[in-house]
Structure formats: structure tokens, C-alpha cells
């Protein structure tokens, strides 16, 4: 564990808490993509199957369980409890355009052709693009609530911090996972446009709106 990985994990946890708080406090999931959230639940489910097969640390197990539980909690709030507030008209990104190619790629490019390893690879690839329906939704409506933009900033920062963690681990531990690194870089690049808008608008106290 190093400081980049720890702050990355904290940013990830903070993002999830921010989203749950936004939905709970406003009693609404308006502006949140149910498709991105469904894919995040799929990401955690397929990645953390190793909870059953091997133990790494109490920290690792606890965080994995929190991530899985919170992702299904978010789906419960969006699709059951506050279903009426779900903005499905603007959530039109086609999930199969991401899930199908990602599933194919995880069969072709993986560390080991075994079920758990293919599912792990699938989750890494899917996570890298799972935010696209959310970003697409913001581009359609042209704006995001401030709390939603804080959520996205925390969520995007997490993988950016992981890149620093991988640089650190490469130099100090000789650890290098090409699949995670490439997918993590793709994931971070997808946020760049959002990061720019967030820093130039939200940090100056304005709402996140897209240039016309």
C-alpha cells in the first residue's frame, strides 16, 4: 500500500458516498445515468469474485464488500425507491456497444485464459468505459448538478491516482500489470474534458454547464 493507492481508494469511496448522499438527500436521481451505475455494479461483481477464492487483507475485503454493496444500493435507489425521478429520456447510450466489445476483448487479451481471470479482465476493461453513458447524458442535457460534478471529479481522480500508484509500484516493487495500466490510462483520458470544465467552472463557484 502506498499513499497514491490509499488516496485513490478514498477518492473512490468518497465518490460513491457523494452519489448515494445526492440521491438520498434530494430524493432524486435526476441527472444520474442508470446505465453507468448498472455497469459499475457489473464491474464490481465480476472483479471481486476473488473474495471467495483468496484473502488479501482485511482492508481489501472490507473495501470490496463496501463497493459491491453500495453499487447495488445505488441501483436500488435509482430503479426502485426513486424510480419516478430517473431521467431515462436522457440516458440513451447503448450499453451493448460497450459490454459486447469489452467482453470480446477480455477473451482475447488477458493474463490467463481462466474464468476468474477473464471476468477480472472484463471488469477492468468495462470500468474504463463505464462512465461514458454518464458523460453522454451530461452532454445531452448540457449541464450537471454541482453535487453530481463533485461525484464525477472524485470518481475520475481515483483512477488518475492509481496511475501514480502504478508508477510508484513499478519503480519500488517491480510490479507492472499492463492490462490495468492501459485501461486505467484510457479511463483517465475519458475524464480529461470533464476535469477541465470542473476546474474552470465548479471551482469558481459556477454550475457545470457545457459551452453551446
Amino acid at each position: 500500500m502506498n499513499v497514491f493507492r490509499l488516496t485513490g481508494d478514498i477518492a473512490h469511496l468518497l465518490a460513491i458516498i457523494l452519489l448515494l448522499m445526492k440521491i438520498w438527500k434530494t430524493r432524486s436521481c435526476a441527472g444520474v445515468s442508470g446505465k453507468s451505475q448498472m455497469m459499475f455494479a457489473l464491474v464490481f461483481t465480476t472483479r471481486y469474485l476473488d473474495l471467495i477464492t483468496n484473502f488479501i487483507s482485511l482492508y481489501n475485503t472490507t473495501m470490496k464488500m463496501i463497493f459491491i454493496a453500495s453499487s447495488y444500493g445505488t441501483l436500488y435507489l435509482m430503479f426502485l425507491k426513486f424510480r419516478a425521478t430517473y431521467d431515462s429520456n436522457h440516458d440513451t447510450f447503448r450499453m451493448e456497444f460497450l459490454v459486447v466489445p469489452v467482453a470480446g476483448l477480455s477473451f482475447l487479451v488477458n493474463h490467463d485464459f481462466s474464468p476468474l481471470e477473464i471476468l477480472w479482465t472484463f471488469s477492468i476493461y468495462l470500468e474504463s468505459v463505464a462512465i461514458l453513458p454518464q458523460l453522454f447524458m451530461i452532454s445531452k442535457t448540457g449541464e450537471a448538478e454541482t453535487i453530481t460534478s463533485h461525484y464525477l471529479f472524485a470518481l475520475g481522480s481515483y483512477r488518475a491516482l492509481y496511475i501514480l500508484n502504478w508508477v510508484y509500484r513499478f519503480y519500488f516493487e517491480g510490479f507492472f500489470d499492463l492490462i490495468a495500466v492501459v485501461a486505467g490510462c484510457v479511463q483517465t483520458v475519458l475524464y480529461c474534458d470533464f476535469f477541465y470544465l470542473y476546474i474552470t467552472k465548479v471551482w469558481k463557484g459556477k454550475k457545470l454547464t457545457l459551452p453551446a
Binding site: I56, N60, D112, N165
Partner: peptide, 10 residues
Amino acid sequence: SPHIRRHDEL
């Protein structure tokens, strides 16, 4: 050596 990878990251 081929062995089951332990993914220790989240």
C-alpha cells in the same frame, strides 16, 4: 512461473 494471479488492488 504460471500461477493464479493475486490481484491485490481494488
